[in-house]
């Protein structure tokens, strides 16, 4: 009974933290971009404008819901859910911290679930995310939305390949699909995967930007060309769902980057750090990657669509293949091979 209570507690804490972070990210996005442009950003709602996401949420709730004439209402309503849900599901296996303690003989871990195929699960559910964009684009009965949806699907499918190959290199090095074990495998002096797999890290980072539809790859909602992309016709809470989905996906991607390449909850130079210290370390590392998302967005211009495809198929994909090949060679015939 109490185990379930603890499990519930952890679930609520994890989801609260991730969705709260996603909400804060909308605020941080505006604040950071403002700062980079010599502005202040939102600073009217609450102290330093911190309640701005709340105000935005209230605004979204009270906006009029519009479903375009000729739209397929069921798929139109399904699409935002399909965007937000996979990102939310992926949270379940993210290891936020290590072992918190033991309860009735069971180890309580800093994640909701700890399946042996953790990373596979993450890749599987985030891969569903593309359906939200393509269905939303198709169901809107609008040419802009349709083009946005098509672009999103093509882009996500292309980059997912390189992403998975990059992750595969990490998995190969660690020899496990379990995220806790991947983290544990990065302990020690220069143990982080970013040092052993720098190319995989770069590939993963670039692909994660494309996967989350962020600048410089946000072709799905490319404003100058497609008005709002696949969510052009969406309003009110349904639009907010797309928004939440996008930002939650960003948080998940930042968490994954931390977990896979930066030692997750491991604290550098402190092997037996307490679990809360691990949580802080994880938070700090993830925050940096979240900041990087914003930072890159307000620095780089958008690619051209053919350049995007060129980069994906002709640069990243071969590099990922070479990377996994070399990794395989090193594992099989390298110094540590048995």
């Amino acid at each position: 009974m109490s185990m379930i209570l603890i499990w519930l507690l952890i679930t609520v804490a994890c989801y609260g933290a991730v969705i709260g972070t996603a909400a804060l990210m909308t605020f941080a996005e505006r604040k950071v971009s403002a700062a980079m442009q010599y502005r202040y950003g939102p600073n009217r709602v609450g102290p330093f404008g911190l309640l701005q996401p709340l105000a935005d949420g209230v605004k979204f709730i009270f906006k009029e819901e519009v479903i375009p004439a000729g739209a397929n209402p069921w798929i139109f309503k399904l699409a935002p859910i399909l965007t937000a849900l996979p990102a939310m599901l992926a949270i379940a296996v993210i290891p936020f911290t290590g072992v918190i303690g033991t309860f009735e003989g069971t180890e309580v871990l800093g994640s909701i679930a700890n399946p042996e195929i953790g990373i596979l699960y993450v890749l599987a559910v985030t891969g569903v995310g593309v359906y939200g964009a393509i269905l939303g684009g198709w169901a809107s009965n609008s040419k802009y939305s349709l083009l946005g949806g098509l672009r999103a699907s093509a882009q996500m499918v292309s980059y997912e390949l390189s992403l998975i190959l990059a992750v595969l290199a990490v998995v190969a090095t660690t020899g496990s699909l379990n995220l806790h074990e991947i983290v544990a495998g990065q302990s020690g002096w220069f143990g982080w995967n970013v040092f052993s797999q720098p190319l995989a890290f770069v590939l993963f980072l670039v692909c994660s930007y494309a996967e989350t539809n962020r600048h410089p790859f946000d072709f799905a909602e490319c404003e100058p060309e497609l008005v709002g992309g696949f969510h052009t016709e969406y309003s009110s809470m349904k639009f907010a769902m797309f928004f939440i989905g996008e930002y939650t996906a960003m948080v998940v991607m930042a968490c994954l980057t931390t977990t896979l390449f930066f030692g997750g909850y491991l604290v550098p130079f402190w092997a037996d750090a307490p679990w809360w210290m691990g949580l802080i370390a994880f938070g700090a590392k993830t925050s940096f990657f979240l900041l990087l998302f914003i930072w890159v967005r307000w620095t780089l211009p958008r690619f051209r669509y053919d350049q995007l495809m060129h980069l994906g198929w002709k640069v990243l994909f071969p590099l990922a293949l070479i990377n996994i090949f070399v990794t395989g060679l090193v594992i099989s015939f390298g110094p540590g091979a048995n």
């Binding site: 950071v32 700062a35 980079m36 442009q37 010599y38 502005r39 202040y40 930072w295 890159v296 307000w298 620095t299 780089l300």
Partner: peptide, 18 residues
């Protein structure tokens, strides 16, 4: 890209016009 990131980050701490 790194050069660009450096520029944007340096502007974050510049005085505001607003």
């Amino acid at each position: 890209i790194l050069k660009g990131l450096k520029i944007t980050m340096s502007k974050m701490f510049a005085p505001r016009f607003t």
